[in-house]
Design a protein around this nucleic acid. Structure first.
Lengths: 108, 108
DNA sequence: ATTAGGTATCTTGTGATGCAAGATACCGTG
DNA sequence: CACGGTATCTTGCATCACAAGATACCTAAT
């Protein structure tokens, strides 16, 4: 799949999954990979960025067989961001679709 | 508008407009900007890449008041590319929408 | 105990590509 | 002849996804 399509989209995907439930990084990769191929080297820097920006908080939780998991939870700011970015994506996708379908002269 | 969303999408937008009619660069910027903000510094390198890859050919045509215009026309390879990239975009957009709407467990 | 393998997090370097800013050049008008 | 609009093109920068690998915890087999 075209890597470039993903630029900027993975962030809203992460926010959107976290809007449904708290997740740890590894779990997010698995969740999102059901639809869009994504690697771990992408998700961790992204999650740290989201934390730096105050959109998520984290808490540790032990796991059965393996190192402790770091769960990510949306903050209020994160929920706002999720909402805004989702709307922006919808507008953007609609614009691209309009262009690809040749509706760029009259319709709206 | 989120710059990152555009990565990789502008190429299919250009191909798609050219699938309707031959255009010169300046005209493409105007055409695409109706829906998606785009700058000239983006379109010219992109057009040169498309030419290098054999997806377009060019021809010059004089204009009333200004330098000659360089028109771009899709080649057969360009039409194939346009078709494939359009389908890939549609699949991608559908995947993202599914994720954002929380349909990532069962539905398909 | 030592090794191997699965789970989980994180870092580094590379590549693709959009943009701002500016250079170049043609043309008509004042 | 300078100016502004049209039109093309180049350079340097920023963003972000990825491959590859480092680290570390735990269980099970040797």
């Amino acid at each position: 799949m075209n890597i470039q399509f993903k630029k900027g989209v993975l962030e809203i995907c992460v926010l959107s999954v976290l809007a449904h439930k708290d997740c740890y990084g590894y779990e997010l990769v698995a969740e999102i990979s059901k639809r869009i191929d994504i690697s771990e080297g992408t998700i961790y820097p992204l999650l740290h960025r989201l934390k730096d920006e105050g959109h998520v908080t984290t808490y540790l939780q032990e796991s059965a067989g393996g190192p402790p998991r770091k769960y990510y939870r949306l903050t209020e700011s994160g929920r706002n961001e999720e909402h805004e970015q989702k709307e922006e994506w919808m507008r953007f996708a609609a614009s691209v679709n309009a262009l690809l379908l040749g509706m760029n002269h009259a319709a709206d």
